[in-house]
């Protein structure tokens, strides 16, 4: 069954930033996004914001998904948004997931993170959110 190559699949780069090594969550999300028809580029553990943005540019990703369970989200998520600004790539959307308190979610959204998903979120919610952002694929 050939995939329709004329449609541009949304390309999502998912990464673990910082020092935390818990990648089960991000792998489950990656798998769910794959099953929803997205091309997911998984870059692995212990990424710096510079590495994440550099990879997203090379991969022509439209979305960056970050996972963090170490508590450093207030530093690292905005750092990725800043790096996107520095590289003039603010059209790339950043979303995140992990153990993030309510108050922090509001603060992070103010600082340019498009959406945050906490533990227990049904995978379909993430997919639905992406579908809303990209109703016609990645063009």
């Amino acid at each position: 069954m050939p995939v329709d190559t004329a449609v541009r699949p949304v390309r999502i780069l998912v990464a673990k930033v910082g020092l935390d090594g818990h990648d089960r969550g991000v792998k489950v999300v990656a798998r769910a996004l794959r099953d929803a028809g997205y091309e997911v580029i998984y870059t692995g553990l212990r990424q710096t914001p510079e590495m994440v943005v550099d990879a997203a540019l090379q991969e022509d990703a439209q979305v960056i998904g970050l996972s963090i369970h170490s508590g450093a989200h207030m530093t690292l998520f905005p750092a990725v948004v800043q790096e996107l600004k520095r590289r003039k790539a603010t059209d790339i959307i950043v979303f995140g997931g992990g153990i993030i308190p309510e108050d922090d979610i509001a603060a992070l959204k103010k600082r340019g993170v498009a959406e945050l998903f906490t533990p227990g979120t049904p995978l379909q919610d993430i997919v639905d959110w992406l579908r809303k952002r990209f109703p016609r694929g990645g063009s």
């Binding site: 699949p9 091309e39 870059t43 990879a55 991969e59």
Partner: peptide
């Protein structure tokens, strides 16, 4: 049509 591109 989805994929996990994991070579990086």
């Amino acid at each position: 049509g989805g994929a996990i591109l994991g070579d990086r």
